[in-house]
């Protein structure tokens, strides 16, 4: 499967998929993009593991052990890794739990919460363990670029990808960084 297309992988860690939805907001520009781009691991392709890629887009921060494994897989395979959205950059909404101890969170969810049946903290090895705090990506791997926003607009996705495809240093216009 040798082509000249740029391989792009995307994933969502501790995020809400809002960034991916916004990615789709590139709308018809996606068609043009697909002439130069091929998707590797991504919710769009359902490929389970990354092959070597040019660009990795990661939405969401790190809340559990599995997030760490996926992120490392991306870092190991992607030449350029981009932290996409507030959660990936700062921890975002999931990091609101950082004001509490992880123990308190689990107790509230599985022991003391309203309507909890058969209270117990799950121990199934299938379930990834929670990290004590939610972390942004750059605290666990090296990150090359940050695409801010919650979520970044379709225009912002298009701008950063166009720049990278054209071999330019990516830069977002002021209007794309203005959020109110």
């Amino acid at each position: 499967m040798m082509t000249n297309k740029v391989r792009v992988a995307t994933t969502s860690l501790a995020g809400c998929f809002g960034c991916h939805m916004s990615f789709l907001d590139m709308d018809e520009r996606l068609v043009g993009l697909l002439e130069h781009v091929e998707f590797d691991r991504s919710p769009l392709t359902d490929i389970k593991h990354c092959q070597p890629c040019d660009i990795g887009l990661v939405e969401g921060g790190l809340c559990n052990a599995e997030n760490v494994h996926v992120l490392r897989e991306f870092r190991n395979n992607c030449k350029i890794l981009i932290a996409v959205g507030a959660c990936a950059i700062n921890g975002g909404v999931p990091a609101m739990r950082n004001h509490y101890e992880v123990q308190e969170c689990l107790q509230e969810a599985y022991l003391n919460g309203v309507g909890v049946d058969n209270p117990m903290i799950p121990s199934d090895p299938e379930l990834p363990l929670l990290l004590s705090k939610v972390h942004p990506l750059h605290e666990v791997v090296r990150v090359d670029y940050y695409l801010p926003g919650c979520p970044p607009s379709g225009d912002a996705f298009y701008a950063i990808l166009s720049d990278l495809l054209a071999g330019r240093e990516p830069s977002l216009s002021k209007t794309m960084l203005h959020y109110d």
Binding site: L106, P122, L129, L130, L131, S132, K133
Partner: peptide
Amino acid sequence: ALETTRQLS
């Protein structure tokens, strides 16, 4: 960072 949840589970 996994120590607490290891113990709890």
